[in-house]
Amino acid sequence: MTETRVPPPESSLPEHSASSPSLTARLRSLTPARVGLGRTGVSLQTRDLLDFQRAHARARDAVHARLDAASLASALGGITGCAVLRLHSAVPDRTRYLQRPDLGRILDAASRDLLANAGAGPWDLALLVADGLSALAVERHAIPLLEELLPRLAGWRLAPVCVVEQGRVAIGDEVGAVLHAQLSLVLIGERPGLSSPDSLGAYITWQPHPGRTDAERNCISNIRAEGLNYAQAAAQLGYYLAEARSRQLTGVGLKEDSNLLSEG
């Protein structure tokens, strides 16, 4: 052991939350970070420890939650008036999903058959809703977001709507290609953060086909109550979709011309 000639360094540290509860509140008002946590010895106090565990538990549960695909399909049929297809990626379960992103980007055999008989387009837009890393995000936000978005898509020819279990973003490429859709819109649960277990992402891809890269898509993320609200998200999506259709591209090229939007 190192011989200690000076007191351990933490002895000079102020017990800041204990001596000044107002400081904790003040720090907390300035940032969503977990600032101002007190100490017992040098360790976290019980309440703060459990708050963290609760946040992590929520995020973990969101990652492992199973999408209620039947209910979602029925709700999607109701608001879109379209046929709804229930598809599944080539990943059999969540454990494999987390380790094999490549298999989450392609359909299983049964889904391919189903899709092949779905009546190919041409369609203006293929709409997919996939669980991704948070089924919770999809269940909370997909329908209310679409309720805001669909009125902006009057006159668009919508392909049969697809609900995809164990899906990744790029599965929209295979689906969009088989359906002969000009554009795909994938609504998908994002990786849960500690304070955001239900964040929804939306990805738009022009002429989707296997091999498209992320640089060729446009993405809107953090759609949730504490983040981007439904009206804001729908406005941005409506803008991107209309621009993508008129300019016949998505990705970096479209984003660079859309800076006015983000500044507005």
């Binding site: 977990r34 600032v35 946590l37 990786r191 500690l194 304070s195």
Partner: peptide
């Protein structure tokens, strides 16, 4: 702070 990076959305050490 609190091991929770609120920008990068991951957990590190506090």
């Amino acid at each position: 702070p609190g091991a929770d990076d609120v920008m990068l959305n991951y957990q590190s050490t506090s």
